[in-house]
Design a protein around this nucleic acid. Structure first.
Lengths: 214, 214
DNA sequence: GAAAAACTGTTGCATTTGCAACAATAGGTA
DNA sequence: TACCTATTGTTGCAAATGCAACAGTTTTTC
């Protein structure tokens, strides 16, 4: 994937893109699995664009518990705001899930548009607007899921949203069953037990990552 | 409060503001307590700006359970994206908490900038960008809080964040204790019990809305 | 192909939570 | 003042959840 295929540069032609890459003082860096790409609060003067691979946004609290706040893939952006300012004692980081390439751009270069107020820069802002909206949307979905009090309700909420996205009552989890537990912030074994109950109660039919809503 | 005092129109002079109010086809409407102002999915062709008063974003699920997704006051914006697209069977609405005035602007009027590509319109987009970022930040805080598994941890997380905002270890809840239970998605009585335990364990000293972190 | 690692699935038990029902205390109003 | 209402605070009990420990299965790695 090239930078001009990312959502941030959508609608900007190749030659303009190259000019902007320089104008924006962008840099591309490669990472391997489990490498820490970004620490919120520290290096937050840059925004990052995922060119390829998958990364996850994780919160590590003072007890060492890991929570996935968000998962990003090709074309997604992080650090575009101080959205994930960590609470005292916690740490919020971006970690490489699978080998990836990241483009870093100084935040100032984006918001302080160039003296020429060029069309491209305006387009860039438009794109950024939509991307942050999407991030807000994902977060809001997460809040919807987490606002349920029981594991069963959290799961049903997640399944429903996923079914809507996949336009089918038979869904395939976008990540491992263990990660689902992290995502809905529940104990894995308790979640497994509840999935078993839901099968028994005829709510769903599930086999590992494959779930049918009944 | 006048429209040009809202964050959306920040940095735009009065006369320009008036012009834009017309150019953007804006309309101001007043609401009384508990009135429903906006239903996501239905009237989402407009964005709304809270001029005065307080409104809350609520999810009503099919069982009738109410969850507060967000609270907005003077200068805040809602409907700027389809951020709160309701899950199937649920309803997401904006409800008036205390007597308020709302400015509605057709969404298209904002994103499709006027033919003149005027400075004001660009500024408007900049402002919108920052506001959505703030919304994402609030949502992310909420996720941080909800990602804790016990009521105690949720409360501590909330207290910490609030202490940081109020720059003091003695904090005053921004809403009623009952609403706090809704906010952290816990049963009120269970939360009260846990607050009692935390006092007993010497973690906090609390009296109604007044809390000291020890 | 064998060993290692990661993931999936299960169970007993102590703790936490939700639920229901009720008591006590502000705050507002006639 | 007396009354009404909203909010805050309390408790018993059943149900849900987390925790720990372990077994089976799949995937990766050498």
């Amino acid at each position: 994937m090239k930078i001009n295929e990312s959502a941030l540069f959508g609608g900007i032609c190749d030659s303009d893109c190259e000019k902007m890459y320089k104008c924006l003082r962008a840099k591309t860096v490669g990472y391997c699995e489990n490498e820490t790409i970004y620490t919120y609060g520290e290096s937050s003067l840059n925004i990052g664009i995922v060119l390829s691979g998958t990364v996850s946004l994780e919160k590590i609290d003072f007890d060492g518990n890991r929570t996935i706040l968000d998962r990003l893939s090709s074309g997604d952006v992080f650090g575009e705001t101080e959205v994930f300012a960590p609470a005292t004692g916690d740490e919020i980081i971006v970690v490489c899930e699978s080998k990836c390439a990241i483009v870093f751009i100084p935040r100032a270069a984006i918001t302080q548009r160039c003296s020429k107020v060029c069309e491209c820069h305006t387009r860039l802002l438009d794109n950024l607007l939509e991307m942050i909206s999407n991030k807000a949307k994902r977060l809001s979905e997460r809040v919807q899921i987490l606002s349920n009090r029981t594991i069963r309700d959290k799961l049903m909420c997640f399944y429903m949203l996923e079914a809507a996205k996949q336009k089918s009552r038979k869904i395939l989890l976008p990540f491992s069953v263990s990660m689902l537990a992290d995502y809905i912030c529940a104990d894995r074994s308790a979640m497994m037990r509840e999935i078993g109950n839901m099968n028994r109660d005829g709510l769903i039919e599930s086999d590992r990552r494959r779930i049918s809503l009944l």
